[in-house]
């Protein structure tokens, strides 16, 4: 039982990191109906920005997270403006292919020696790892930080979307661009803001991932990106609480599959979930049963 609880906590930790990535997928899909396949690579860039902030620039850990978030936000906005915006009226397949292109570009460009380099790097831990024992379950200060930062960001996002004027504009635009424009909303700006926020969350996720699973490389975003995408679909793509729920489930299922069944089946579990969701409930756990909104 304690072993189960221990693995549950480990799974939740993973799930919280996935959640930070899944939110960007779901927000961007909600607003422009695009699966931004480059999103996992933005997460990777966030991990590297945190790496340099901690190891090279010797910044304190909270500042490193902010650096990663701001850097990724700018990258997210840049990607949207340069790659996706010109294609907004084009058939959807064009932007999907472009997304894959942007993803490959980020992976191989950052692999260059003068950028991040193609090799694995050990992630610097900004502080000594400590563990605390609680009723037989061990929790590390790293885990506490992952939970804490992810929770704060998710609460902040929820408040932003539900309580601010810009958040209201985001919800209006995700419903219908034309009608939102008739309200006087600058739709292009709202789309950019959405990409920026999604990318910032992924950036924070990258830093948390770095300190928790301390090794990074330019291709590290692929798997977490895919799993976060599955999480977003599982929760109901376009729905913010859905992404959080889906991600937590994904993290826990992955961890439990790894320790109770087989570590080689770990990733297969994620895609089994995707297939099951698509078959049984294509609109996701929190999605409406009806077809996609117009």
């Amino acid at each position: 039982m304690t072993y189960f609880l221990q693995q549950l906590i480990n799974g939740l930790q993973l799930g919280f990191v996935y959640a930070l990535i899944a939110l960007g997928y779901t927000m961007v899909y909600g607003i422009v109906r695009l699966i931004n396949f480059a999103h996992g690579d933005v997460f990777m860039v966030g991990a590297y920005l945190g790496f340099f902030a901690i190891a090279s620039w010797r910044l304190p850990f909270p500042v490193a997270i902010v650096v990663a978030m701001v850097g990724c936000a700018l990258l997210g906005v840049l990607i949207e403006r340069l790659a996706y915006k010109p294609l907004r009226r084009a058939p959807r397949i064009s932007s999907l292919i472009t997304a894959i292109g942007v993803s490959l570009f980020l992976e191989y460009f950052t692999s260059l020696k003068f950028v991040f380099g193609p090799y694995f790097r050990a992630y610097p831990r900004p502080f000594a790892v400590r563990t605390y024992e609680l009723a037989g379950i061990t929790i590390s200060n790293i885990q506490i930080i992952v939970f804490g930062v992810a929770l704060v960001l998710m609460v902040a996002l929820t408040l932003f979307v539900n309580r601010t004027k810009t958040g209201l504009a985001m919800r209006a635009v995700s419903f219908d661009h034309q009608t939102a424009a008739l309200m006087g909303i600058n739709v292009n700006n709202v789309i950019s803001i959405t990409f920026g926020i999604g990318a910032a969350l992924a950036g924070a996720g990258g830093v948390l991932y770095g300190i928790a699973y301390p090794q990074i490389n330019p291709f590290m975003g692929i798997m977490p990106g895919l799993k976060a995408f599955v999480a977003a679909v599982l929760g109901g793509i376009g729905i913010i609480p859905g992404a959080m729920l889906g991600a937590v489930i994904m993290g826990v299922v992955e961890k439990l599959t790894e320790v109770y069944i087989s570590s080689t089946l770990r990733d297969a579990g994620a895609f089994a979930i995707l297939i099951i969701v698509l078959l049984v409930r294509p609109s996701g756990l929190l999605g409406k049963k009806q077809k996609e909104k117009v």
Binding site: L168, A169, R171, F175, D176, Q178, T179, L182, M183, I185
Partner: peptide, 22 residues
């Protein structure tokens, strides 16, 4: 607009607030 185009998932109040967005 034609067909009213309400933001159906939002409350009446939120719809009205959007009208006053500017």
């Amino acid at each position: 607009p034609e067909g009213r185009k309400p933001f159906v998932d939002l409350t009446v109040e939120e719809n009205l607030r959007l009208g006053a967005f500017t």
